[in-house]
Design a protein around this nucleic acid. Structure first.
Lengths: 156, 156
DNA sequence: GGTTATTGGTTGATGCGTCAACTCAAAGCT
DNA sequence: AGCTTTGAGTTGACGCATCAACCAATAACC
């Protein structure tokens, strides 16, 4: 029923359908490229990237989970796999035994460096380079606005 | 190709990180609400919605897969589950035995109608109502632009 | 100071998505 | 007609994410 808060107006619906389609398809494109060229998930890539740019190439698990936008549980599984591949190491923090600190290894770092250009090129090809500078700015505002609602307390 | 081909500028990177966070988190919010309140996936919801608004409440599988932004394989699995729940029926088309036509049942339709308000409310709460009309228009343009690159030949 | 609560992470079962292999039907070809 | 090719959809195995239960270490509290 149009006009009712219970439903979406035509314009609203059209926008939502476009966004929904984007949410379904864009992750697939990114994962496909990374998987094919580097055997990495987008999430795994973010984990390695998050470690590589941290001081000491190390980061505690919760922090890393926040950075990579995933749950701690998910991260734990993923880091275990990355550890088995020799890309990451884990050890408890000295001052607090509850905390686990993950560190990217040299081979993990090399692997990331090898994977990065292809990933960046894909991000450029499908997102950055198809939008105007104005649209990029708009997109950032829009995404941040929604994220503030979805995930209050991060960023801000 | 604007910009340095290999890396992202600061602004570009910030935008991309925001979008990436959105891609990770927004689907979770939507799926969570639908799962909790109706025992449906967002994808399942789209499948039922796609059927409900089609003539004869029926649609062929490939068409439905396109509408719901998923692969035919994925749809086949999902429709099998929905069929087991009594929400959907499948039968081959009369004129072409290769084509499978899916139809939403009455109980599936009732179920969808019961699930819709909560889903719509969530979409409003996290997306539509936090953005200005201007931003909604921008978002649609942006999403469609990216989708045209991701998925050339659909829409537009 | 000993018990309880809380915090940080891990683990295992379950369910869904993906990929490749497969089936069946309809055209194409000769 | 036969043989092959293409198109539409299904299936099964495997991998990953989620959820809930769990464990360990620290902090709170009396």
């Amino acid at each position: 029923m149009p006009g009712d808060a219970q439903w979406l107006e035509r314009e609203e619906l059209a926008t939502w359908m476009s966004l929904a389609a984007l949410l379904f398809k864009l992750p697939g494109v990114l994962d496909y490229q990374l998987q094919r060229d580097s055997g990495l998930t987008h999430f795994e890539y973010l984990v390695l990237a998050g470690l590589s740019e941290s001081p000491g190439r190390s980061r505690r698990m919760s922090d890393l989970a926040g950075f990579a936008n995933g749950s701690l549980s998910r991260l734990s599984h993923v880091v275990k796999r990355l550890e088995q591949r020799g890309f990451v190491e884990r050890r408890p923090a000295e001052d607090d035994g509850r905390i686990t600190v993950a560190t990217i290894t040299d081979s993990g770092y090399e692997f990331l460096v090898a994977a990065a250009p292809g990933h960046v090129a894909t991000v450029r090809e499908y997102v950055v380079d198809v939008l105007s500078p104005e649209q990029l700015a708009q997109l950032k505002d829009i995404a941040d606005t929604i994220l503030a609602k979805v995930d209050p307390g991060k960023d801000c």
